[in-house]
């Protein structure tokens, strides 16, 4: 039998006689959900999972009053659980990777490298080269140093925003806004270039 949202909320009050039972049940939900959701993630052994679940429970109980009831309580709890778990796993995976090093070895090479698809017609390849040159030029001239760095790390190197943010001394939310601003600038600049959206769609958007 499943608890309703109201039952979860009242049972998870520390004064409730059903508090311990509710914690046991919530722990089971988190265990089942997180191990299924994170099955493919490296570095998630049983011990790590238990540590993470403990963290999540400690996090959830005091802020139970912030639950707004727009969804099932277990969905809300798992949302926090997934966020906590992935933040930890990302950090473990990326903490020894230096942002500056990978930018130096890779991201900036992108700006001087050249690529095209030999299976495309010569015409299409020419347009693609032109667009690539434009893109590289605009990334170099339109973006600030920080925007360029973040864009290269996230889009070219596949580094999580969260870890890029940590190494750049900011947080994920601010980094998203920084990248959003960078995309807006690039979009405006591309639209000002002498290119038609059809060129872009042809070479990049469609496959």
């Amino acid at each position: 039998m499943e608890r309703t949202n109201e039952e979860w909320l009242s049972d998870l009050k520390e004064s409730s006689p059903r508090f311990d039972a509710a914690i046991v049940e919530l722990r089971l939900v988190l265990q089942k959900g997180l191990s299924a959701g994170l099955k493919k993630w490296q570095g998630l052994n049983k011990e790590t999972l238990e540590d993470i679940i403990q963290d999540v429970l400690v996090k959830i109980v005091p802020k139970i009053d912030t639950f707004q009831g727009n969804c099932r309580f277990t969905t809300w709890a798992l949302k926090i659980g997934v966020n906590t778990a992935i933040t930890e796993l990302r950090h473990r995976r990326w903490r020894d990777v230096s942002l500056d090093e990978i930018i130096e070895s890779g991201g900036m090479n992108f700006l001087s490298g050249n690529m095209s698809n030999p299976s495309y017609s010569p015409e299409k390849q020419t347009i693609q080269h032109l667009l690539m040159d434009t893109l590289k030029r605009l990334i170099t001239t339109e973006l600030t140093e920080r925007q360029r760095k973040a864009l290269m790390a996230v889009r070219i190197q596949g580094m999580p925003l969260e870890e890029v943010a940590r190494q750049m001394g900011t947080n994920r939310n601010s980094l998203y806004k920084l990248l959003h601003d960078a995309r807006l600038r690039l979009k405006k600049a591309i639209l000002k270039e002498d290119l038609t959206p059809e060129d872009l769609i042809d070479s990049f958007i469609s496959s």
């Binding site: 969905t75 966020n83 893109l135 925003l161 939310n173 979009k187 958007i205």
Partner: peptide
């Protein structure tokens, strides 16, 4: 090419009114 395509698609579909990660998290459930 895939990476570049993704980047260009990301740029060209940018909107002025995007929500940030915190607002997304708020509504994700």
């Amino acid at each position: 090419m895939d990476t570049i395509k993704q980047m260009v698609r990301g740029i060209m579909t940018t909107r002025a009114d995007e929500i940030d990660c915190a607002e997304c998290f708020e509504q994700l459930d």
